[in-house]
Computed example of a mutant assay.
Amino acid sequence: MLSAARHTLDIFCRVIDNLGDAGVCLRVARRMAGGFGWSVRIFIDAPEVIAPLLPPGLAHVDVLPWAAAEAPDTVPADCVIEAFGCELPAPYRGRMAARRADGEPAPRWLNLEYFSCEDWVAGSHGLPSPQADGLAKHFWIPGFRAGSAGVTVLPHAAPDRAARRAGAPLQALLFCYPYAPWAAWLAQAGQGGQTIELWVPAAGHGLHAASTGAVKVVREPLMDQARFDARLARLDFAFVRGEDSVVQAIVSGVPFIWNIYAQDDDAHQPKLAALLDWWCAGLHRDAAAVMQQVHQAWNSRRWPSAEAGVPSLWQRYLDMLPMLTEHARRVARRVRAEADLGTRLSQWVG
């Protein structure tokens, strides 16, 4: 049931990228409930996907099956988020329009898009799309550049980042799509001189990674979003996939290697290039070049073999890791100092 919070929010989500879509919606819900006292409902077509992500004791957030929104006694919220163009249930949308026809304020309705750092975002974010029933849907586009909706930033405790002991293993995450060249990377990293403790979450479907050489694989069960965030923030680097985990790595100041969700005709490549251009701004050119090369290899599904007498791509990344780490923390401080998506949404609704 909705409480007497200052505002109410309904988020609609159809799961496409497994945990990613659900994770983005849950993060928005947690931000608006915990940061602004809103009462939030998430209507989702796969509640079993989001259930393991819910932090214990989460208040003012209810997760409901999609069909619950179609019930005649479901009253639309003050603000309605249609995540990733999922289309609202017709009965629910009809009640939104009826409210307007009765002279009551219509819900603020927005379509939450996938995030992007591409130049077109500034000219599209916030634009209204008038509907035939008199309602208006606004496009809400997250991103890191000016003119976007920003990204969702949850309050966090500063991670314990004590100086790593000489010779201690690097702590890392492997969370990628099965088509990433993870096996070739693992073999190359296993032959290197740097020991790595590699966290492979249970959500890493299709990754049958096993310890090899310098790399010790640690498998852990799926954990709730708050625990995942805290664990991620303590890592030395992270292979991340989709949208939610790469944004969280950036916000946490962790060097990342992003496996972007692949689209037909390589339509995802400009989005990947735009993010790297933004993140690498101000980074030493040698480190930026390695960052670009690693991402190209990781997303082309071909990890290059080492050549005799030449440092491997992975060794060159490790050589740049101290510089990448310092830069990642600078970027995170800058992002956290800006108004995030939750703040901008609260201001927009009023």
Rank of each mutant, 00 (worst) to 15 (best):
residue 118 E to C: 05
residue 119 D to T: 08
residue 112 L to Y: 03
residue 151 V to G: 06
residue 145 R to N: 14
residue 137 K to G: 13
residue 142 P to A: 12
residue 148 S to V: 00
residue 122 A to R: 14
residue 154 L to H: 02
residue 137 K to H: 12
residue 133 D to G: 11
residue 135 L to T: 12
residue 117 C to V: 00
residue 139 F to V: 11
residue 151 V to L: 10
residue 110 L to I: 07
residue 112 L to F: 08
residue 132 A to G: 09
residue 127 L to E: 06
residue 135 L to F: 14
residue 153 V to K: 05
residue 122 A to V: 06
residue 130 P to G: 13
residue 129 S to Y: 02
residue 121 V to W: 06
residue 144 F to H: 14
residue 120 W to T: 05
residue 117 C to T: 01
residue 122 A to C: 05
residue 155 P to C: 00
residue 112 L to S: 00
residue 139 F to T: 13
residue 128 P to K: 13
residue 138 H to Y: 15
residue 113 E to D: 10
residue 142 P to L: 10
residue 124 S to Y: 10
residue 132 A to R: 15
residue 117 C to Q: 09
residue 127 L to M: 09
residue 155 P to G: 01
residue 119 D to M: 03
residue 155 P to W: 02
residue 136 A to Y: 14
residue 153 V to C: 09
residue 128 P to A: 12
residue 122 A to H: 04
residue 126 G to Q: 04
residue 147 G to V: 14
residue 131 Q to D: 09
residue 156 H to M: 01
residue 152 T to M: 10
residue 135 L to C: 11
residue 118 E to D: 08
residue 148 S to F: 00
residue 156 H to F: 01
residue 118 E to I: 06
residue 138 H to V: 12
residue 110 L to Y: 06
residue 150 G to P: 03
residue 111 N to H: 07
residue 124 S to P: 01
residue 145 R to F: 01
residue 146 A to H: 15
residue 128 P to I: 10
residue 134 G to K: 12
residue 146 A to I: 12
residue 134 G to V: 13
residue 130 P to R: 11
residue 125 H to I: 04
residue 117 C to P: 05
residue 116 S to P: 00
residue 151 V to M: 08
residue 154 L to Y: 05
residue 137 K to Y: 13
residue 121 V to Y: 04
residue 152 T to W: 02
residue 157 A to Q: 04
residue 132 A to M: 12
residue 123 G to C: 01
residue 120 W to A: 07
residue 134 G to N: 11
residue 137 K to M: 13
residue 118 E to Y: 00
residue 122 A to P: 00
residue 132 A to L: 13
residue 152 T to K: 04
residue 130 P to Q: 12
residue 117 C to H: 04
residue 126 G to Y: 01
residue 114 Y to P: 02
residue 127 L to I: 09
residue 126 G to W: 05
residue 122 A to L: 03
residue 122 A to Y: 10
residue 119 D to C: 05
residue 155 P to I: 08
